[in-house]
Design a binder for these strands. Structure first.
Lengths: 157, 157
DNA sequence: TGCTTATTTCGTAACGATTACTAATTATCA
DNA sequence: TGATAATTAGTAATCGTTACGAAATAAGCA
């Protein structure tokens, strides 16, 4: 089953319709899976395939996708909400490196925290459903080569 | 040296003055060290000791305290910035538990991530200067007793 | 002490992201 | 088809935050 079909099923399961507008927005997220797009960015991109789509619809759709746990809403302190598609299995394996020099945001998928989470269960009586782990710092290569000019670097702040 | 004096030194070291308004704001933070106050909350509290203090001054002062690394600015997804005094040594030992049931926010000080951070250094060539680790989930006691009525629980969202 | 200059504060206007609202459009289904 | 519900578009309103100009306060110096 391709990703769109899978998402369509998740919509149907909760009695929501995957309209053409919503599908266009989801497609933008799929096409930019590596990024953490803001509403405005999604809006600009989706306009290419769906010129008449309204900004409020992007807000509403991303909110709905968040409720359905198809995307994760995040905030990196730059004043705008950012959204990230997330596979069901990745909830506990999704971390970030944020470079102070170039602003690049790298996503890391690893199961670093499972031990900690079972420890929270034991020692704090706290059952973890989700977590967030961001590291701020700098790539050693950035510090030496002045990576600010690198076009690959996309600042988030 | 008491905390206010220590902070006064940090101000002086960067050629800023610890005015009476700034001192009143810092005192509010010291008095509520366990909480993560928003600007509006600081504003409401500081009015008791300094009725004429303006909202913009609270914004400016908290911004300045952030620059001086005396407080940490955080965002828990409830649409407002929150601020937390932080000791110099705590940068890498400062995590959160956020309860989905009652909204309580618990602060945990532990050195859980030092191993991970040295691993990032080795495997990613990334030097960590700061991190953020939030766990969302629920206290087992909350789930069973309906902790929403507990006055200790302070919602953040 | 007085004068000058820089810093800080105050109140409010402006800004930008987000939400709310109304009318229009589209889908559902009896 | 016709009635009802869901969705969208466009825009006004809201809310947290920032910017701005004028007034107040502090610092430097003759």
């Amino acid at each position: 089953m391709n990703p769109i079909e899978h998402i369509a099923q998740q919509f149907a399961a909760q009695n929501y319709k995957l309209t053409s507008q919503r599908e266009a927005i989801v497609q933008v997220l799929l096409d930019n899976e590596k990024d953490h797009l803001s509403v405005e960015e999604v809006y600009m991109i989706v306009k290419h395939s769906y010129p008449h789509l309204g900004l409020a619809t992007v807000y509403r759709t991303l909110e709905l996708l968040t409720e359905l746990h198809i995307v994760e809403k995040m905030n990196f302190g730059d004043g705008v909400a950012r959204y990230d598609l997330r596979g069901d299995e990745q909830a506990h394996m999704h971390h970030h490196l944020i470079c102070n020099v170039c602003g690049k945001l790298e996503e890391i998928k690893d199961d670093w925290l499972v031990d900690l989470e079972s420890r929270l269960e034991r020692e704090y009586g706290f059952t973890v459903t989700d977590h967030r782990l961001d590291f701020k710092g700098s790539y050693n290569s950035c510090k030496s080569t002045g990576c600010k000019k690198d076009k690959e670097c996309k600042a988030v702040s």
